[in-house]
Amino acid sequence: MGTFAFITLDQKYSFATSIFFQTLKQVEASLSSFPNGLVYRLNHHRCIQTDPIVQDAIEKSLYYYKRSDGYFDITIGSLTKQLFGFGTSQEKIPTIKDLKQATLGVDGIHMDQNSICLDKAIMIDLGGMGKGYAIDLAAARLKKMGVQQAVFGLSGDIRCLGECQVKVQNPFVSETVAIIQSDSKDFAVSTSGTYRRYIKDTRYNHLIDPKSRRSQKLIASVTLAGSRQNAFLDAMATAIGVMPLKKAWMFAHSLKNIDYLIILENGTMIKHGNRISITKPTGFILFPSTVSAYIRLLQQTAE
């Protein structure tokens, strides 16, 4: 999946290590938009035979699309894969004209019992939830095997079975800015950020608003934490990361029982929830009661 994976568990559960990595390989074979992945084949041949993992991931993504008011849109692949070429040897910055003319729309995805097909010019990119999906499947398999204590992750998606602490990375330099303390037997954390993939500099990052078709400029990273599925948190963090700032904050705050930490490009931190403790601030720390006033100030300054 083009990133790092890890797993930490007690010696008595060592048998689960191979299952974990086998699961990641299985999901990658289905959801990867790079050569040898089924999604790559779907994007380039328009149709594939139904695959349970691809179908399930797309069905979940269509729900996330509705849940996020269209800001989580897997047909963003028409931009991220076809125009920008993120993660390939053909990375480039497309023209505004090309961005405007690109075809997006979840109505261009068609599934039945036998096949999954895309309309002409539609390309999908499951990178905004695929890692979380892989972690969810691994968690389900490990729990079924009786694993009760483990910490494992794939890039910014981390799962805790049992008690754990998770460090949140500074999006500007290599250091920890916050610690998240789990409070349940099954706990998930997901971080999405502009610093993870970009062309030339973070102005042309992979977190692209499907409505404006522009890369995110104000939000550097979004971390969500709670007793939810990683795929859900992964998708919601991606959606928040591409939203206009006011909508991003209001949407994050609407997620029930989810703690969040949003770090802006100017270093300002917006925090909610007792499970997140900031250890090294990157700038001012805002809490929900002060965010609205701060956003109004930013808007007045920009005018």
Rank of each mutant, 00 (worst) to 15 (best):
G2V: 05
G2M: 01
T8V: 14
Q11D: 14
Q11T: 12
Y13M: 08
Y13K: 08
S14H: 08
A16Q: 08
A16H: 05
A16L: 05
I19K: 15
F20C: 15
F21D: 09
Q22L: 06
Q22R: 14
K25L: 13
Q26I: 10
Q26N: 13
A29F: 02
A29K: 08
S30P: 03
P35N: 05
R41Y: 03
L42F: 04
H44L: 10
H45G: 09
R46E: 03
I48R: 04
I48F: 07
D51K: 02
I53A: 10
I53L: 15
V54L: 11
I58L: 13
E59W: 00
L62A: 03
Y65A: 05
R67E: 15
S68P: 06
Y71T: 02
Y71V: 05
T80D: 05
K81V: 14
G85L: 06
F86E: 01
G87N: 06
S89T: 11
S89N: 10
K92C: 12
I93T: 03
I93Y: 04
T95Y: 09
D98I: 01
L99A: 01
K100G: 03
K100N: 13
Q101M: 11
L104Q: 11
L104E: 10
L104I: 12
H110E: 03
M111K: 08
I116R: 07
K120N: 10
A121V: 01
A121K: 14
M123A: 12
I124S: 00
I124C: 01
D125Y: 00
G127Q: 06
G127P: 13
G128Q: 01
K131I: 02
I135K: 00
D136M: 06
L137G: 01
L137Q: 11
A140E: 12
L142D: 06
K144D: 14
Q148E: 14
V151Q: 10
V151E: 09
C160E: 02
C160H: 05
L161E: 02
C164P: 02
F172C: 10
F172M: 04
F172E: 05
F172S: 07
V173W: 05
S174N: 15
S174F: 06
T176W: 07
A178E: 06
K185F: 11
G193V: 12
G193S: 11
T194F: 06
H206R: 02
K211F: 09
R213P: 08
S215D: 01
V222M: 04
L224T: 08
A225L: 07
S227G: 12
R228S: 08
Q229G: 07
D234Y: 04
I240G: 01
P244N: 01
M250Y: 11
H253W: 11
S254P: 00
Y260P: 03
I263A: 04
M269I: 06
I278H: 09
K280F: 14
P281W: 12
G283H: 06
I285Q: 12
S289D: 14
S292N: 15
A293Q: 14
Y294Q: 12
I295P: 09
I295N: 05
Q299T: 10
Q299A: 13
